[in-house]
Design a protein around this nucleic acid. Structure first.
Lengths: 246, 246
DNA sequence: CAGTGGTCTAGACCACCGG
DNA sequence: CGGTGGTCTAGACCACTGT
């Protein structure tokens, strides 16, 4: 059996194991509802301690690839449970994961004084009086998918320009590159609303059509709110997926 | 400092620690963005090994109560991040968590031959030809919140009656009690739709009002689909929460 | 009963952060 | 530099499952 670790690899052993096991699952070598080797067997196979084995399996269980049954073994999850967890993704990543080519049309981009609602959502300090406001029409395979309105907290006195965003495409990449801000968590709410005439026009649907409204506050690695985003999705083109566990 | 374990308590130590730490957070003793004691300090305080400490902290981090920063410490999350993860809950649990008293009016309950759509969602074996069909109006503080349609896979030849469901209230309790079926995971999709005249009448809103449609397939401890549920929520009374992580 | 996962210990070395 | 979290080891005992 393969000696596990490549000592020149800086990746932790448990994560190398995760990669190996996920490969053995997706390749079809390990089939749904069939047991993987027991933890003690994996110790011998890969020459790592049981703690490390369990660390890897724990992660795969949380990700939905495996499930455990006390006293029986650890088994491969059916395909249905192997995808769609609550991951923080950008619109572009979300679209690509669905096999759709993302696109955008920037309608407006400027520094603006935030409303009280936006101030509260972003928990803005009193001395910060401007945020970056962007309104974009988001496209999927060239067709309007949603209307995105976002407010971004930037370091005092700095800004972004339209050309930069158009060139890079992803505002997350831009924020990381320029200001070292990384999105790590978000709180999201979803609700159903009806399209106003303006929204309907932009999204090329009839006024009064149903829309899925996602409202999200994203937090940076410093645990501070870094953006407030609303996306109005066309209900006929967008469904939200979630995986729930007990 | 308090000796940790009550040896007469069968709860694992790491989980007792989780409870203790969550209590210290919610009581306000540990404040947002402030560090909790280091892992080595917690070893001494509670007389458990660092592995056990980390097991407890891992869980609280995943639940959003704490966050770690390598080389600095472990900190209390701001309130915003302390709630609303992807938990599999019943309608009743969901309502109670929102401070609303759940209720229901059973419109129909019978064994029925499933449509092809339902068969596929439930991955029904060929020899299973009947499922339990229930249609219920769900109430929140006595007012219509949603219309729930559900299909349940029961052991061959068995069923449930209306009186049992009305007495117990929760179908999950009933399924566990009678058939030892426990819901462990679910896949959910959310979309926006418009109310048909019938739905509008039952929900006491205008036809054409927006509704949030949740479609869920729930899996049992045996990793088999056990129910297929659609809930149409009144958009004016219901929002869906999710917490996302990177 | 033997084999499985669940919990737990007492160590160790590393990478990262701040003063 | 000392203190933090991140990874890892080699054991141990328990609770649960099947035969």
């Amino acid at each position: 059996m393969p000696a596990i670790v490549d000592p020149n690899d800086y990746t932790p052993k448990y994560y190398q194991l995760v990669t190996i096991l996920r490969e053995r699952i997706s390749s079809g070598e390990l089939l749904p509802h069939q047991p993987i080797p027991s933890e003690r067997q994996l110790e011998d196979i890969y020459s790592v301690s049981r703690t490390t084995i369990r660390q890897a399996i724990d992660l795969l269980v949380r990700q939905g690839f495996l499930y455990r049954e006390h006293g029986r073994g650890t088994f491969v999850s059916p395909q249905k449970l192997q995808k769609g967890i609550s991951e923080l993704t950008s619109f572009s990543e979300d679209m690509r994961a669905r096999g759709i080519e993302p696109g955008q049309k920037i309608l407006e981009l400027k520094m603006a004084v935030p409303s009280e609602e936006v101030r509260q959502r972003l928990e803005l300090p009193a001395d910060q009086d401007e945020v970056l406001f962007i309104e974009r029409l988001r496209l999927g395979d060239g067709v309007p998918m949603g209307l995105m309105t976002s407010y971004h907290v930037l370091p005092e006195g700095l800004t972004l320009d339209r050309e930069g965003l158009e060139a890079v495409g992803s505002i997350y990449s831009l924020l990381q590159e320029k200001f070292h801000l990384i999105a790590t968590e978000a709180d999201e709410t979803l609700e159903a609303v009806l399209a106003t005439p303006r929204e309907a026009g932009l999204l090329q649907i009839a006024a009064g059509s149903p829309l899925l409204l996602s409202v999200r506050v994203t937090y940076s690695q410093y645990r501070r709110a870094m953006e407030y985003v609303k996306i109005l999705y066309r209900a006929d083109r967008y469904q939200y997926f979630a995986k729930l566990t007990r």
